[in-house]
């Protein structure tokens, strides 16, 4: 396992409330692992805790990265070990150029421009149009998020946590996403994909279902999605997508059984 969470509990900064409780799962090296759950289920908080943000310290549990206990490490140290996070809503900063921003995490400080151009191409942005711009309000939400993703890719991290990469995009083109994910996969980076959308999650190999601060199951993604759909009452969607997906091919009776179980629980 590249990343492993053992009984992780994350409280609010004032420690008055618990945001996510007793979470355990592992992320396999080279995989796309989705964390799926509705809004408010604690996905972003869990991402921040994995990244090591000061305001999301664990009150219980441990986090391991490549077998090493990183629970006590800060953000910078975790980033230097190869973990990074593409924020759900990355900041706009006047005066910080796209080129400079992309270069921040590059390990190889030679050929910065070439590396930046490659990173922009990976996220399907035209390098010529963007490299000399600034990460300020002049970028649309979608452009800013793509640049965020490019900046994390330019770091060549071992693990990228993507917090709702599709949110705030003007138009979601699923093919475009699949194309980007495939390119990242080729670069041998592991992705922890956070989403509340079933269709985006479909690129994942594995998944964890987060529901009201608890991790309900961790399994192959189709299995996780089936549970998610059962909880959310999305039977039609579930049948349509899971039948079409050759990886899974659940029988209709199996889907009905899971929905039935969910109703009774």
């Amino acid at each position: 396992m590249l990343l492993e969470l053992k009984n992780v509990t994350v409280p609010t900064f004032d420690r008055e409330h618990i945001i996510v409780e007793d979470i355990s799962f592992g992320v396999k090296e080279g995989s796309i692992h989705a964390i799926i759950g509705p809004n408010g289920s604690g996905k972003s908080s869990l991402a921040y805790a994995i990244m090591g943000l000061h305001t999301y310290q664990l009150s219980q549990g441990k986090i391991f990265f490549e077998g090493k206990n990183i629970t006590e490490l800060g953000v910078t140290e975790r980033a230097q070990l190869g973990i990074t996070l593409a924020w759900q809503e990355p900041a706009r900063i006047d005066g910080l150029s796209v080129l400079k921003y992309l270069s921040l995490g590059m390990k190889d400080k030679a050929n910065i421009k070439e590396q930046a151009i490659d990173a922009l191409k990976t996220v399907n942005l035209d390098p010529e149009k963007y490299i000399n711009r600034y990460i300020d309000e002049s970028l649309s939400g979608g452009e800013r998020k793509r640049i965020e993703l490019a900046a994390t890719i330019a770091m060549r991290p071992k693990l990228i946590i993507l917090d709702e990469p599709d949110s705030g995009l003007d138009m979601i083109v699923i093919e475009d996403f699949l194309n980007i994910f495939n390119k990242i996969r080729k670069l041998k980076m592991t992705i922890l994909l956070i989403t509340h959308r079933e269709d985006i999650g479909m690129v994942a190999d594995y998944g964890t279902l987060l529901w009201q601060g608890k991790a309900l199951i961790t399994d192959e993604f189709a299995e996780v999605m089936l549970r998610f759909c059962a909880k959310a009452g999305l039977k039609e969607f579930c049948k349509r997508t899971l039948f079409q997906n050759e990886k899974t091919c659940f029988g209709e009776d199996y889907i009905d059984k899971i929905f039935e179980e969910e109703r009774n629980s």
């Binding site: 953000v75 400079k100 921040l104 995490g105």
Partner: peptide, 21 residues
């Protein structure tokens, strides 16, 4: 946090932000 998640120390991140400002 966003800059530190790219591997910069707090001080390096601050310098980048001052420079940008």
């Amino acid at each position: 946090d966003e800059l530190q998640a790219k591997g910069l120390s707090e001080e390096e991140a601050t310098d980048i932000l001052v420079e940008a400002m």
